[in-house]
Simulated scan of single mutants.
Amino acid sequence: MARYTGPVCRICRREGLKLYLKGDRCYTDKCSIGRRNYAPGQHGQNNKKLTNYGIQLREKQKVRKYYGVLEGQFAEAFKVADKMSGKTGDNLLKLMELRFDNVIYRLGFASSRPEARQLVVHGHFTVNGKKADIPSMTLSVGDVIKVKEKSQSSDKFKALVENHKKTAPQWLQVEPENFTGRIIAEPAKEDIEIPIEEHLIVELYSK
């Protein structure tokens, strides 16, 4: 399945809540959820009751789109989470949060996850001093992320650092003036910006 390239505000409207896919716009009055909080399309305002399967599917789709993960990638992540010790749902969210592109966004080095993914692919960052350009790679506690020296002088990163307002979650430590971030603990569900019922996703994949 190819990555969705249409209007991302339609995704938020379909899920009925902000998924923070357009960066700063999501925090303004221009956000579509505030103006048209119903699903897109001709029948978007019809209240259709979902089956149990439909509820589980919508929860999976919400999380998948929130992190910008393809269907196959999400299914593989679930398999990995299921083999880890502990609760599968908690493990799955932890894997999503530790994705390289998500960490870049959470550190405030990008205004949205799609932008973070693009910046990673273009090779603007290092992890533990080594070039890293794979958005889906899973980072670990202790990893140090830094904007490459030649990228630090770009107007893009200068503006991000000068206007750095994003508060990093407790499991991350960020030094915007040094273009550096560090993972200091495992991510917690409480730090995720949207409500997630991960048990519904586990139930869906357990069928």
Rank of each mutant, 00 (worst) to 15 (best):
81 A>I: 12
30 K>L: 12
170 Q>C: 08
192 I>R: 00
123 G>L: 04
103 V>S: 01
165 K>C: 08
104 I>E: 03
114 P>V: 07
184 I>N: 06
60 K>F: 01
101 D>W: 04
120 V>T: 01
111 S>F: 08
122 H>C: 09
76 E>G: 11
12 C>N: 00
59 E>P: 07
13 R>G: 01
18 K>S: 13
158 K>Y: 00
42 Q>A: 13
169 P>F: 02
83 K>D: 08
78 F>H: 05
78 F>R: 02
117 R>A: 01
52 N>Y: 10
116 A>F: 02
199 H>N: 14
27 Y>S: 14
66 Y>N: 05
176 P>Y: 00
189 K>T: 15
155 D>I: 07
18 K>T: 11
152 Q>W: 06
49 K>R: 15
84 M>C: 10
142 G>T: 02
62 K>M: 12
39 A>V: 10
43 H>C: 03
183 I>W: 02
162 E>H: 09
51 T>P: 03
141 V>A: 03
107 L>Q: 05
181 G>C: 08
184 I>V: 15
69 V>L: 11
157 F>T: 03
28 T>W: 08
160 L>A: 00
168 A>Y: 00
136 S>Y: 06
58 R>D: 07
104 I>W: 01
84 M>T: 11
105 Y>V: 00
36 R>C: 10
139 L>S: 06
126 T>R: 10
17 L>F: 05
91 N>K: 06
24 D>S: 11
127 V>Y: 02
101 D>C: 05
160 L>Y: 01
135 P>A: 02
66 Y>G: 03
78 F>L: 15
114 P>L: 08
63 V>G: 01
173 Q>Y: 13
14 R>E: 12
47 N>R: 15
